[in-house]
Design a protein around this nucleic acid. Structure first.
Lengths: 223, 223
DNA sequence: CTCCTTTGTTGAACGTGTTCAAGTTGAACA
DNA sequence: TGTTCAACTTGAACACGTTCAACAAAGGAG
C-alpha cells in the first residue's frame, strides 16, 4: 500500500485513516479533521489529495474495484452457467464491500446525485464504469452454453445496470449480513439466465429490438 | 396560504420563501439564512418550524402528492388500456413535479438514504407510500381488458416500484424538459401491459410464482 | 389587575466541509 | 555547488447547517 513517491504515501495514509475511522464511527461522525489528525497530516493536505470528503470514499472504492478485478478469475474458475458466474461475481463484490456496508450509505447518498462526479453515470466515473462493464464481459464471454448472439453485445452493459440496481438494494438492505440482497441475486440470476437463453426465440425478437433501441435512444438523449 | 394563527402564517411564509429561492437558485445554493431573511424571520425561527432544511422540501412533496391524488381521476377518465392509464398517471406526476426538477436532486439525494425519514421505504413515510400504492390501485382497477387475477393483487405495489425506478431516472434526467423520462415511460408502459396480459399463460406460471414469492420473502426480511 | 403557561422569536455560538495565500521540500539542472 | 520549480504542506479563515439559552407575546386562571 506504500507508494513510491512521498505523495503516494501521504495519499495512502489518508485513505487508510479514513477507512479505519469510517468503519469505526460511520461516515457522518467522522470529520475531515479527525481523518487528517489520524493520518498525521494537516487538514488542508487532505484536501490537496481529495477534493471532498466524498472523493475520499471514491478512492477506497477504486481500491476495492481493483481487488475485485484481480480476484474475479479465481471465483469464476470452474463455473459455466451464466447464473452461477453472475452470482459468483456479485458475491465477491458483497464479500469485499461487507465491512463498509455500515457507512456505504454516506457514499451512495452522494453517488445518487447525478451532478456529483461520484455518480456511476457521470463523465468523471467513466473509467470506473468501463472497467466494471469489462468485468461483466468476462462473466459473459466464457459462459456455457454460450449467450445467444442476438443479445451478446448488449448483455454486459445490461448486466452492469442490473449490478447497479442490486447495489441500490444492498445499500438499503438492513437484514443481517445483507442476506436479503444475496437472496435477491440467488433468485434473479437464474431468471436472467433463463430469459437470455430464450433470446433467439422468434416470438421475443420484437421485444428485444424494442429494448435495444430504447436503450440506444436513452443513451443518445442523455448525451 | 395564510393560516389562522400566527404560527401558521409564519410557517407558510417560510415555505413560500423557500420554494421561491429553491426554484430560483437551486437547493444547495439556497441558504437557510437567505430563506429566513426572505421570509422576514430570524434564522432560529425557521428551525422552530422545520427541524432541517430537508424537512422544508418534504412539505412541497406532500402538497404535490395531495394534488396528484385529486387530479388523477380526471386524467384517467376515458382511458381503458393499462399502458395508457399508467402513462397518464406518470405524466401527471411529471407535470406536477416539473417546476421542482431543478432542485429535486437536493431532495432525492437524502431520500436515497434509507436511514432518512424521507426515504420512500422508511417507516416514517409509510403513509405516503400507502397512498401512492393506492393511486396505482386506481390505475389498475378499472383497466380494460381487466388485469388477470394471477397478478392482480401484487400489481399495484409492483407498479409503485416501477414508479420509484422511473423517479430515480427522472432525477438523473438532464434532457430538455425530461423528455428522456417521458420516452422511457411511453416505451416501457406498453411492455408492461403486454407482459401483464400474458400472465395467465401456463408457461409463465413458474416465473410469476418465483417473482411473487421473491417479493414476499424480501419484504419479510426487510421487516 | 397579577401570575403562569404555552407559543413564538431571537441572534450568538458551535462544529462542520471547504478554500486559500503563504510557506516548505526535494530533485533536476546549470 | 547554487538555482529553479513543481510537488507538497500548512493553518487560519469562510460559509454553511444546526443548536441553544434567553427573551417576548398571547391568553387564561386566580
Amino acid at each position: 500500500m506504500t507508494g513510491r513517491t512521498r505523495g503516494e504515501q501521504t495519499k495512502a495514509a489518508i485513505i487508510d485513516a479514513a477507512l479505519a475511522l469510517f468503519t469505526e464511527r460511520g461516515f457522518d461522525a467522522t470529520t475531515m479533521r479527525a481523518i487528517a489528525e489520524s493520518a498525521g497530516v494537516s487538514l488542508g493536505n487532505a484536501y490537496y489529495y481529495f477534493r471532498s470528503k466524498d472523493e475520499l470514499v471514491q478512492g477506497f472504492y477504486d481500491r476495492t474495484a481493483v481487488e475485485h478485478g484481480e480476484r474475479l478469475p479465481e471465483v469464476l474458475d470452474g463455473l459455466d452457467g451464466l447464473a452461477d458466474r453472475l452470482t459468483a461475481h456479485l458475491d465477491l463484490w458483497f464479500e469485499l464491500m461487507a465491512p463498509q456496508h455500515p457507512f456505504a450509505v454516506g457514499f451512495f447518498r452522494n453517488a445518487a446525485d447525478p451532478a456529483s462526479p461520484l455518480s456511476p453515470f457521470s463523465a468523471a466515473s467513466a473509467p470506473a464504469r468501463t472497467a466494471a462493464i469489462e468485468l461483466m464481459e468476462r462473466v459473459v464471454e466464457d459462459a456455457a452454453p454460450p449467450v445467444p448472439a442476438t443479445v451478446r453485445a448488449q448483455l454486459p452493459e445490461v448486466l452492469w445496470l442490473y449490478h447497479m440496481g442490486v447495489v441500490l438494494f444492498w445499500v438499503h438492505d438492513r437484514s443481517v449480513e445483507q442476506a436479503a440482497t444475496r437472496l435477491l441475486v440467488r433468485r434473479t440470476a437464474p431468471m436472467i439466465e433463463r430469459v437470455v437463453a430464450l433470446a433467439d426465440l422468434p416470438a421475443l425478437q420484437a421485444t428485444i429490438v424494442d429494448l435495444t433501441t430504447l436503450l440506444a435512444d436513452l443513451k443518445a438523449m442523455a448525451g
